[in-house]
Write a protein that binds this DNA or RNA. Structure first.
Lengths: 118, 118
DNA sequence: TGCGATACATCGAACCGCAAGGTATTATGA
DNA sequence: TCATAATACCTTGCGGTTCGATGTATCGCA
């Protein structure tokens, strides 16, 4: 085997994925996202604000999210929602994750070798 | 919320998990593991030797693996197999992964909020 | 005899996620 | 009333993983 291609950091970008998914369902602000992930995964996943905010900024910079300022009860919030580009991004990440999870699951539960490709 | 607990690097240790799983099924050596992961996941996951060897060394150092030298066709190979401690480790990692994957899958496919805990 | 595959190994760079810290406002409650 | 907790935003340094490149040596085959 001369070509040695591996996958660049195949595990990364899960916070990205979750955030995009949440925002596709519903407009949300940073602090709310932190809690939403905590609640909806029943504490299995708990990302802090130090993860969420940088991701939001990066995604907006890349055009996957758009934001609008809104003041509620004297509290200034920045609501984010996905753009069409973000929606496409979500679809890609989502599929990649599904493939990955399936592959791992298969290794964990599955038996021996895959049949050799003919 | 004063207590801000998150999960320490929840995505890491997948190579560990896969390697332990392979070795539980069958004694293998490093170079073989690299290809086995490649083959059995149908190239969805491709970890290089630079990932596998350090993990093997670390796991052995921690007592999760044991090794024996063996020469086949004039080629010196180091075969690894899991110890009881390694088996326990595998069980833990495996369960953690399953929970994680389930939580993410639920967010990706699921609808809205989880019902509030009564 | 020279190239590709086998088989081991290490190291630096890159990257990500985490904890911790910082600001400011509003609500709670002692 | 005055500290504390919760809301809401944000940045930065650290640590740990993973990746890619590189190195060595042997074997088989053309």
């Amino acid at each position: 085997m001369t070509a040695r291609e591996t996958n660049p950091n195949f595990m990364n970008g899960v916070p990205q994925l979750l955030i995009l998914r949440l925002l596709q369902q519903e407009e949300m602000y940073g602090y709310e996202i932190v809690q939403a992930i905590h609640n909806r995964t029943e504490s299995v996943i708990a990302v802090g604000e130090g993860v969420v905010y940088p991701v939001l900024h990066a995604l907006e910079r890349e055009g996957a999210l758009k934001s609008r300022r809104k003041t509620v009860n004297g509290r200034s919030r920045i609501y984010y929602s996905v753009t069409p580009a973000g929606s496409r991004r979500l679809a890609n990440l989502s599929e990649a994750w599904t493939n990955l999870a399936a592959a791992i699951q298969k290794m964990l539960t599955g038996g021996q070798n895959v049949e050799a490709i003919p």
